[in-house]
Nucleic acid binder design. Structure first.
Lengths: 144, 144
DNA sequence: TTCAGTGCAAAAACTTTGCAGGAGG
DNA sequence: CCTCCTGCAAAGTTTTTGCACTGAA
């Protein structure tokens, strides 16, 4: 997704939900999309501060939640007790492989995951909305 | 796993790792196995305090980590920023279905999950040690 | 003009650490 | 007797909240 399209989509979402259109929210959007694949709210806040942005920590947290609600970002959580965000555009059904040695996060797309999720949900009378699928272990470099 | 067997297994593990055999560690073990399927360290600490146990918070955290290391408990994390523990006895390869409405956690066992994990790991030159597989959505009661 | 959104700092929630005293081996 | 473990409290981390002010509609 390019930046302009993202900007417009977020704007529409804000209007629809009667949230105000503020420059701070678009600043967060812009940094979020320039940031790496997986970042935390605080990382982004510090990055923005470095980049001479004056957006406050509270606003960063708030704006990221709005971006999750409008499905432009997805929340992840990899075992440490902190929340990561990632762009969710065109990224359904993917799995994270997380190296316990170096923390590297590899993403893998596998068509069978979605099928499996649906079949498990169905079997348990459960309405599937999203999933987290993390495989923990050692990456190639650290498998000694 | 019955309580005595668990006690013995933990004892052997402690000896093997040159950890001391202390009454506090076995108290934590005992409460952990009487506690629900998924509990946090702090929940357990408060429960123990209620139960007139004098074990400190630090010791609860420490002992739970030892129980994870000896593979009697598994660490989980369901999207909120806190660590849950669960008994890992006879519970490889299971998936959690978490209701966003009421927080209920359903467990599902599915033989295909392990196969899929192994095949994804292999494809990415990754050594699979464990996984987290959570499906988020609505349970039967809340699917309206 | 109005009130949602903002910045700031304080509080909250969960976990880890430092230290002095106590008990396991 | 030597340390590892313990309890306690303090500190650390990440996230949320309260409050007074500001700016979007």
């Amino acid at each position: 997704m390019n930046k302009e399209k993202a900007h417009d989509e977020f704007k529409l979402f804000l209007k629809a939900g009667k949230h105000r259109i503020t420059p701070e929210r678009f600043e967060v959007l812009s940094y979020a999309f320039e940031s790496g694949d997986h970042f935390t709210a605080d990382d982004l806040y510090l990055e923005m501060k470095n980049g001479k942005s004056n957006v406050s920590r509270a606003t960063v947290y708030n704006s990221l939640e709005l971006l999750v609600k409008c499905e432009m970002l997805a929340k992840r959580n990899f075992g440490e007790n902190k929340t990561f965000y990632e762009s969710s555009y065109n990224r359904k059904n993917h799995v994270h492989l997380i190296c316990k040695e170096c923390g590297e996060i590899i993403e893998s797309n596998n068509i069978k995951v979605a099928e499996l999720v649906n079949s498990i949900a169905k079997k348990n009378n459960f309405i599937n909305e999203s999933f987290q699928f993390n495989i923990l272990g050692k990456c190639k470099k650290h498998s000694k």
